[in-house]
Computed example of a mutant assay.
Amino acid sequence: MPARRAEPAVRQVGSRLLLALAVLVATSVIVYLDRAGYHDNAGGELSFLDAAYYATVTLSTTGYGDITPYSDSARLINILVITPLRVLFLIILVGTTLEVLTERTRLQWRLNRWRSTVREHTVVIGYGTKGRSAVDTLLGQGVKKEEIVVVDPQRKAVEQASQHGLVGVVGDATRTDTLVRAALPVAARVVVAPERDDTAVLITLTARQLNKTATVVAAVREDENAPLLRQSGADVVVTSSSSAGRLLGLSMLSPHAGAVMEDLLTYGQGLDVVERPVTRAEAGHGPRDCADLVVAVVRGRRVLNYNEPEAAVLQLTDRVIVIRATGGGA
């Protein structure tokens, strides 16, 4: 679940253990300084080890009775000093235990509540460079953080996603149980962005088996693996290496065209490519009559270029893919 700004649990437990140890040492020193007022059934004067033993059994309320205070000063110190230290010692130990149990209960309650309410969300598999960029774009497009679930085999990556306010699942995404924990069967969108192409194929197969209707977008490094991913059930396949190579070649031939393409690919800066519904004012008109620059028309499950005859007249049920300046309204 999304991390809350709090002191790490290990640090909390460590600091409390040090405090409990400090109480134990302080009690041992107090008893040792007043050792003449204590009686040991084993005979002889109390050593520091005996004082530490008495402090341990006293603070833990074990109290074997083999070492007892008999002088008035020793008994008074037990009443006024050691008894409050005993209470403090117990508060530290019991408080730590209760807090751990309470935190576990609270986390389990949040997890159960999330599982019962999450629907139509987006599952991002792989929180590397591609996965993080996909999440940033989704957030820029208005998707809420609580509607995004990150799956990654690296605990460090999932903790990073949790710190950013996202729900994270640690595990192998090729396994069904991992994707079920991410509630993928009820997800609306799945982004497959692992480091290896063969892993992407296995994840896509597993995801499509669990969810027949979700939109699955997968990233691969090599073009030759793209058809295999489509056969595995991916709706859209993005080839990262060839796309980068084409952008490099375009930038070499025309640096300005390359800069424009880079601008279009970088969401939130300069120009953005967005998909939006056709407005009532635009219905019945051509793509060139829209305020935004229309590059394609989405009609049903088909994507029509703006200059195709079928796209000459926009319908109210259509959606258009447009290029607009950053921050432009819908």
Rank of each mutant, 00 (worst) to 15 (best):
A22R: 03
S28L: 08
V29R: 04
V29L: 15
D34C: 08
R35C: 12
Y54P: 05
S60E: 11
P69R: 00
D72V: 10
L80C: 12
P84C: 11
T96W: 03
T97V: 14
E99N: 12
Q108G: 14
R115H: 03
R119D: 15
G140M: 01
K144L: 15
V149E: 03
V150R: 01
V150C: 05
Q154I: 14
A157R: 00
V158E: 06
Q163N: 14
Q163K: 11
G171P: 13
A173N: 01
A173G: 03
V180F: 04
V186W: 03
V201I: 02
T204K: 02
A207Y: 00
R221E: 09
E222K: 13
D223A: 10
D223G: 02
P227H: 01
T239I: 06
S242N: 08
G245N: 07
L247P: 03
L247Y: 01
S251F: 01
S251E: 02
S254Q: 03
H256C: 05
M261D: 00
G270S: 09
G270E: 05
V273R: 00
E275T: 13
V278K: 06
V278G: 09
A281Y: 13
A281I: 04
E282Y: 04
H285V: 08
P287S: 10
D289S: 08
D292M: 07
V303Q: 09
L304V: 15
A312W: 00
Q315M: 11
L316M: 13
I323P: 09
G327E: 14
A330C: 08
